[in-house]
Design a protein around this nucleic acid. Structure first.
Lengths: 156, 156
DNA sequence: GCGATCCTGAGCAGAATGCGCAGTGCATGT
DNA sequence: ACATGCACTGCGCATTCTGCTCAGGATCGC
């Protein structure tokens, strides 16, 4: 879908100041309020704006440890069944099927490094996971930074 | 920070229906409006609710390919300088310092598999990255799913 | 030229917000 | 038992925003 600079500016405004109102945004951008409304409706409608919700931050409520786990799964079950089983574990934040040596890549949160061990054990206990290889995140420089890409797409 | 069930219910309401108003939420939960306001202020204040912004979805505006890149960096520069250099590339969505064989883990978006090659070349061209090993995401089962963890934390 | 599409400025009723305030229930510490 | 602090409650008020509509004007492709 085509994005123009106005779209990007609207998203930037609502990103930088989440108390922004549609009316206020229209004033700042010097366009009609209905225009901002229409752009937002269009972008939310076709998925350019996926989620616009309060994102709980695990590190802020007792889960400061993040790790990425490469999983080799039980092929008898299939990817979907395994990802469903992993979905029942609240510590599992994210699951992808990936290329390469492993089958799945999962992002998990934990209370501590030893608690991470507990989470890994839970994953193995589902019998869906045969082998796992874990990489621990030591420092997050940034994440979820999709706005620059949107702005780059707007300029083309 | 301590989270209780009311906190989790509030976040769930605003997550499932993003047009939810504070007033409507207070009616549904049968608590005073001021209580919902106070809980939201508290959670946004101490970071439990990190971002509450429109999240652009790269796949919806021309970047359907996602990959995770393990990077070995030029040690002379240091992690921060390298992550800053990577931050200038809009296709780089996320950067972590990680344990294990590699130094950094980056999530990148691209227009296609061959476009991914272009992005990798840009990263290498910064001279900050010495070696890279890439895993392509074939299918995303879920991501950003932190609400179940918040609810689990609320029950303890 | 002509239609389709988008933007504009305006209006209006309804709803939500920000703010303040006094009262109440509950746990804590003395 | 009592005082203190804290969170929740229910209420009201002025202000602001939203959702919706509509007619007119600009732009673009054909």
């Amino acid at each position: 879908m085509r994005i123009d600079e106005l779209d990007a500016k609207i998203v930037r405004l609502f990103t930088e100041e989440q108390r922004m109102s549609v009316l206020e945004a229209s004033r700042l951008l010097k366009v009609a309020r209905a225009t901002v409304q229409a752009r937002l409706d269009r972008m939310t409608g076709n998925g350019v704006i996926g989620r616009w919700v309060p994102q709980p931050e695990p590190r802020a409520f007792g889960f400061p440890v993040v790790a990425f786990c490469f999983l080799t799964i039980n092929q008898d079950l299939g990817h979907d069944a395994v990802s469903k089983a992993l979905g029942d574990i609240p510590e599992v934040i994210e699951v992808h099927t990936v290329s390469g040596d492993s089958d799945l890549l999962a992002r998990v949160a934990a209370r501590s490094n030893s608690d991470l061990q507990r989470v890994l054990d839970i994953m193995m206990a589902t019998r869906a996971v045969v082998r796992s290889s874990t990489v621990i995140v030591l420092n997050t420089h940034f994440e979820g930074r999709t706005l620059p890409l949107l702005e780059a797409a707007a300029r083309t």
